[in-house]
Design a protein around this nucleic acid. Structure first.
Lengths: 139, 139
DNA sequence: TTGACTGCAAATGCTTTGCACCATT
DNA sequence: AATGGTGCAAAGCATTTGCAGTCAA
């Protein structure tokens, strides 16, 4: 959890979005998620707070949050639907190929190296995706 | 181009696949692709060699090749269909956010670091996805 | 008030599948 | 001959959209 629901809400308002019950529900779900929920997951959880929410609105809201850069849209090669999390650009993921569990890690050296590679190729690094897929070592 | 069409064909035969005209067409397309074609692209190009090929077969063939690990299925966040290339695990991609062009790069240090990170987390690294998204530096 | 937002259901569009026919081995 | 492969068209399914009603500002 990198941002509170309140902070998220403020960013949305700044961006000119109206704060409605369904949107608040989605923001809360994201703010409290410890995992990487799919759209369906977000929908299910948001319904607990606003039972009348529709999945179309969840799609629309997540789309807006993605545009605003508040959220990161993952497409792990594992599961085949998109999965979301609050945008905290400084970590990456290791996906357990047997269980599908998603672990997070960060590594400053890799951050620097990414920057450098992009620069060497004449590019400014804007976005990045780094996912490791592996199997638990036994021992 | 990391494998010739012949080499690919042999690997498919080894794996027990029958070699048919449509499959050969798909293999040729992949062997000669310098880019990262979508299913649609592969279909269009394969039709030049085997006009009667159907897109269902292209999907099926690419799926098989993916299972065999002969091909890598990309899902760049840019375009929203899958895009394929022959599996050469040692390079990664930088996607130009303005043009959508895909550049390739390799970097041994990052390879090592990935390994190490996975190991430190108690995992054997099986697969990895590293994509940089950026904008051309002007000057 | 009014333009943004919503739920609903229908439409999209990529991908998969059932089926009957066909070709490789 | 047998089995796996194919084209076709229909089905699936996650996501998007048109629309008419609703609500935040």
């Amino acid at each position: 959890m990198t941002m509170t629901a309140k902070e998220l809400e403020n960013k949305c308002i700044e961006a000119g979005l109206k704060m409605t019950a369904p949107r608040r529900a989605v923001l809360n779900v994201l703010a409290h998620a410890e995992d990487h929920p799919s759209v369906e997951d977000v929908y299910d959880r948001a319904k607990k707070e606003d039972p009348s929410i529709s999945i179309a609105t969840v799609y629309r809201t997540l789309g807006l949050l993605d545009e605003l850069g508040l959220v990161y849209r993952h497409e792990f090669t594992d599961s085949d639907h998109a999965r979301y999390e609050l945008n905290d650009t400084h970590h990456h993921h290791l996906i357990d190929l047997d269980t599908g569990k998603v672990l997070e890690f960060e590594n400053p050296q890799i951050e620097k190296m990414k920057q450098k590679i992009a620069e060497d190729m004449g590019y400014e690094l804007v976005e990045c995706r780094l996912e490791l897929y592996g199997r638990k070592l036994k021992k």
